[in-house]
């Protein structure tokens, strides 16, 4: 850089100027400048609030006010109280079950669309799969209540057909109902990443495997499944993380024994006005989600490395 100015016998100040000009036109500067509005927004509306609840979670609750006395009492209550511990464990259990059910049910759908649908019709199928997802979530959840309820669609049809005499009660206001409803709500989230991963698989790899003597089933087991694992991992995370924080479904169809962590958080914030305890619960929930996700990613690191090649 220095040679330019020196060769033309110009003062050093010109050199500094062009250097600044170069930085201004440089990729790094343009990129940072361009991303700054969005990044600033995320900083103000996400980073600061997250830091705030982290702070609140170690403050003392003083009935409608918050006292600036640092304490770990909120965490002690969130982790020590059997009620909260039960809610937390139930949330984990429900999310894990929903994730398992959703991903297992979704895989064959993604497989069918990727491998058995002609390329020109793939987007139509994906479109059909995504449509229900874009319709009102509240109303969808409520309709499951209608389907599963005491006088609901399932019970009245089964009774009309004479299969049962009494309405089934184990399908509403408990964990089962929460799992069914959430599995329905998060279906496209599971299908799309698996579909994308399956689409990326070079079809000649499958032919090569069969050419090398593997049966179709073993080809799936030894080639297709491992190569689609990045999609499965993404599907698991994208279902698991939001479901653990779902509020509407447990509230509407869960009944008292189906309450999850969000309902507890909401109760602390909007009903009891205990922000510190609510924050401690929220931070704990995030910590659990993050920990489980990281462990899951670690266990699947073998499959994820393939993607980077």
């Amino acid at each position: 850089m220095g040679a330019t100015g020196a060769n033309r016998g110009q003062p050093a100040i010109m050199d500094a100027k062009t250097r600044w000009g170069r930085f201004r036109r440089s990729e790094a500067a343009s990129g940072l400048l361009l991303i700054s509005p969005t990044a600033l927004y995320a900083l103000l509306m996400l980073a600061v609030p997250l830091a705030a609840i982290l702070l609140y979670s170690v403050l003392t609750d003083g009935y409608l006010t918050v006292e600036w006395t640092p304490t770990l009492a909120n965490y002690a209550e969130a982790w020590g109280d059997p009620l909260y511990r039960q809610v937390m464990l139930r949330s984990l259990f429900v999310s894990a079950t929903v994730t398992l059910v959703t991903v297992l049910l979704a895989y064959p759908v993604a497989y069918y669309v990727s491998f058995h649908v002609s390329p020109s019709r793939k987007s139509l199928w994906l479109f059909l799969i995504t449509i229900p997802f874009w319709t009102s979530y509240l109303i969808r959840v409520f309709l499951w209540k209608v389907i599963l309820g005491f006088n609901g669609v399932v019970n009245s049809s089964l009774m009309t057909l004479g299969i049962i005499d009494e309405p089934l009660t184990f399908i509403l206001y408990n964990v089962n109902a929460v799992v069914i409803t959430l599995a329905h709500a998060y279906a496209p989230f599971a299908i799309l990443p698996i579909f994308v991963a399956l689409e990326k698989i070079d079809r000649s790899l499958l032919e090569a495997s069969q050419d090398l003597g593997e049966s179709r089933l073993l080809t799936f087991w030894r080639v297709t499944l491992p190569l689609s694992m990045p999609g499965v991992v993404a599907a698991v995370l994208i279902v698991f993380i939001p479901t653990i924080g779902d509020y509407v479904t447990p509230q509407l169809v869960g009944g008292p024994e189906g309450r999850m962590i969000s309902n507890a958080i909401q109760l602390q914030y909007l009903r009891l006005d205990n922000y510190p305890l609510g924050s401690a619960l929220a931070v704990s929930a995030m910590a659990i989600v993050t920990a489980v996700s990281l462990v899951f990613l670690f266990l699947n690191r073998r499959f994820l490395r393939v993607r980077q090649q």
Binding site: M1, A3, T4, N7, R22, R25, S26
Partner: peptide, 12 residues
Amino acid sequence: TIAGFEDLSQGT
């Protein structure tokens, strides 16, 4: 660099 899409690190 001749077209001007890349800056030079040195030279003219």
